[in-house]
């Protein structure tokens, strides 16, 4: 482990950044999924259920 500020530590500079780290480093991708997931599972699903409540006979 390096003591230098912003050092590259043990990783050689040319080693590619792992996929998940790239995902976590991308705030706009996270923003997109953070809005899509609750919109689909909570809002759209919830509204669909209410709309499909039958009318009392």
């Amino acid at each position: 482990m390096s003591d230098e500020a912003q050092g590259d530590g043990a990783n050689p500079v040319d080693e590619p950044i792992p996929f998940m780290q790239q995902v976590l480093d991308n705030p706009f991708l996270l923003l997109f999924i953070g809005i899509t997931v609750p919109t689909v599972f909570y809002l759209i699903w919830g509204v669909m259920e209410i709309v499909s409540i039958p009318i009392a006979d």
Partner: peptide, 30 residues
């Protein structure tokens, strides 16, 4: 934190657990 981004907001359903017309599947998942 990523799990928060993905799932935390679903818990809005906490407020709808004794509401008419929403299915148990919706309630349990969210």
């Amino acid at each position: 934190f990523l799990l928060y981004i993905l799932f935390l907001q679903l818990a809005s359903a906490h407020h709808l657990l004794v509401e008419p017309g929403l299915s148990s599947e919706f309630k349990i998942f969210n």
